[in-house]
Each structure stands twice: as structure tokens, then as C-alpha cells.
Amino acid sequence: MEIHLKIIGSLLIALGLLHVSFPRYFNWKQELSTLSIMNRQIMYVHSFFIAFGVLLMGLLCLSSSNELLNTPLGKRVSLGIGIFWAARLLVQFFGYSTKVWRGKSFETTVHILFSIFWTYLTTIFMLTYFL
């Protein structure tokens, strides 16, 4: 199980860093230009903190996998993280319109890959708590 937490740690760090490309990839300068400055800044700030939180989860998994597996506090932290990723998995199916990805090969592939990834994260963190 420790190897899974190390793999997850590396993947979460990569995902956190990937967020740096979001503004350019999603053309936020143009797409968000019609929003008020408050709403535009909320998008940037919230995206930063999501990325930062994901990066920190990754660092936690890499640096403290043994503690997550073998201490009562670590198991509770794992449960919380597992619930977080379970909620994210549900949002993958019920928070996004299928219009975002259906009929588009790249977007469908990303949807499937992230659905698998969120399932993997949820499973490993829940198993870490319950085993």
C-alpha cells in the first residue's frame, strides 16, 4: 500500500503543477474578460489554492506514507482525503455537463482517465483508513 501512496504523491504533485498551464490552455484572458474583476480574481485565486492543496497532498503522500498507513491520525487524514476524492469523483459525473466531453475524442479520453484516477485515489485512501 505504501507504494500506491508514493505513486499517488508523485501524480498529485504533477497535477498540482499542471494547473500552471490552465490559464493559457483554457484561454482565460479572453474567456474571463467579460467577468467582473472580483469574479475573474476568484477564478485565479481558487484555482491557485486548488493546485496548492493538491500539491501539498502529493507532498504529504511522498513524505509521510508510513504515517498515513500506520498511525491513528494518519488514518483519519487518509479518510478525509478519501472523502475529498470521492466527492471529486461524483462531480466528474454529476457536476459537468456531458456536452463538455461527449463526441470529442480528446475530452472524452481526459474524462475517462480522470474518472479512473479519481477512483484510484478514492480507493487507496479509503483502504488506507479501513485496513
Rank of each mutant, 00 (worst) to 15 (best):
P23A: 10
F26W: 11
I8K: 07
G80S: 05
L127W: 08
V91Q: 11
F26G: 04
A86V: 08
V91N: 14
T119A: 13
A14V: 14
T119G: 08
T122Y: 06
L90I: 09
L68V: 12
R40N: 10
I50H: 08
Y44L: 14
L68R: 02
V100M: 15
L32Y: 10
L90C: 07
Y96W: 08
S21I: 09
T71P: 03
L113K: 13
S97H: 07
L59F: 14
L113V: 13
L11Y: 10
F93K: 06
V20H: 10
Q92Y: 01
L69V: 05
G58L: 09
L11G: 04
S36L: 04
L62K: 11
N70G: 05
I42P: 05
I13E: 07
G53Y: 11
F117G: 02
K99S: 11
F49T: 06
L60I: 14
H4C: 08
F130R: 12
L79W: 10
L79K: 06
G58Y: 09
H111I: 00
I8N: 04
L73C: 00
S21R: 07
Q92R: 15
A51D: 03
F93W: 15
Q30H: 10
L12W: 02
R40P: 02
G53H: 09
L121K: 08
W28Y: 14
L15I: 13
H19W: 00
F125C: 03
H111L: 07
V45F: 13
L90S: 04
A87G: 02
L62C: 11
Q30V: 10
L90K: 03
P72R: 12
K29F: 02
G58I: 14
A86T: 15
L59R: 06
L62D: 05
E31N: 13
S36K: 13
F49G: 10
W118I: 02
Y120L: 08
L90R: 00
L12C: 08
H4N: 11
T128Q: 03
R76H: 11
I81T: 06
N27V: 05
G74W: 04
Y120K: 10
K6T: 07
F93G: 01
F84N: 02
T128M: 04
L18Y: 15
Y44W: 12
T34P: 00
R102F: 12
L18K: 06
V110P: 01
E67D: 13
S105F: 11
I42D: 05
W118A: 04
A51K: 10
F22L: 02
N70R: 12
S105T: 14
F117I: 07
S115H: 09
L11H: 09
H111T: 03
L60H: 03
H111Y: 14
